[in-house]
Amino acid sequence: LHPPPLSPVTKIVSHLLVVEPEKIYAMPDPTMPDGDIKALTTLCDLADRELVVIIGWAKHIPGFSSLSLADQMSLLQSAWMEILVLSIVFRSLACEEELVYAEDYVVDEEHARLSGLLDLHVAILPLVRRYKKLSVEKEEFVTLKAIALANSDSMHIEDVEAVQRLQDSLHEALQDLEGGHNTEDPRRTGKLLMTLPLLRQTAAKAVQHFYSIKVQGKVPMHKLFLEMLEAK
């Protein structure tokens, strides 16, 4: 007798919306000359600070902190770049062919070309186009981000069933979200989940990109970023 509310957001999704990290700033060093080294130093520093935030965020995903410390580490070591990339992609949805690495670091193709970021730019844009086409909403984005973490296919999981339970609860949250407010497309949950292979491909390219920069040794990298890069 009571019609369901128009946009019922599940308890998990509303929690994920609350714990969504604040905006982050790249703050490029004004004393450095413009060019590849400056751009990459800015991005590596940004990524290092974002990693600290991502680790804090992960602990707030319902069920994540109940996993063993080793399994928490394994999931983050597998999925951190997917989470970073997904965040950039979501920030970039309102832009035309630009990537919003941070509020104060928006890169278009020309800037990317001039600062050695073109490979990364070209790798991430197809994912932005894919999510634009789907008109992905914030509720869906925060849930997908948590799913990317839980579904990271780490080879080193100790308690596979516990990780499966985490995946199931997040999957259910996404299904409830779609069942609630998107009845015109019964396949939307599937469509959103089907974006995850491209996210993984894109993140793998980004890891490769930063790993070769690390090997070249020209760009300073903070310890956490290096540690996560080496874990891949």
């Binding site: 990290p21 310890k223 540690e227 080496e230 874990a231």
Partner: peptide
């Protein structure tokens, strides 16, 4: 774990939302 000590330490820290 020794190789991943920063991640380990950050995960062990309190779950306080201040990290966010």
């Amino acid at each position: 774990k020794e190789k991943h000590k920063i991640l380990h330490r950050l995960l062990q820290n309190s779950t306080s939302p201040v990290d966010l």
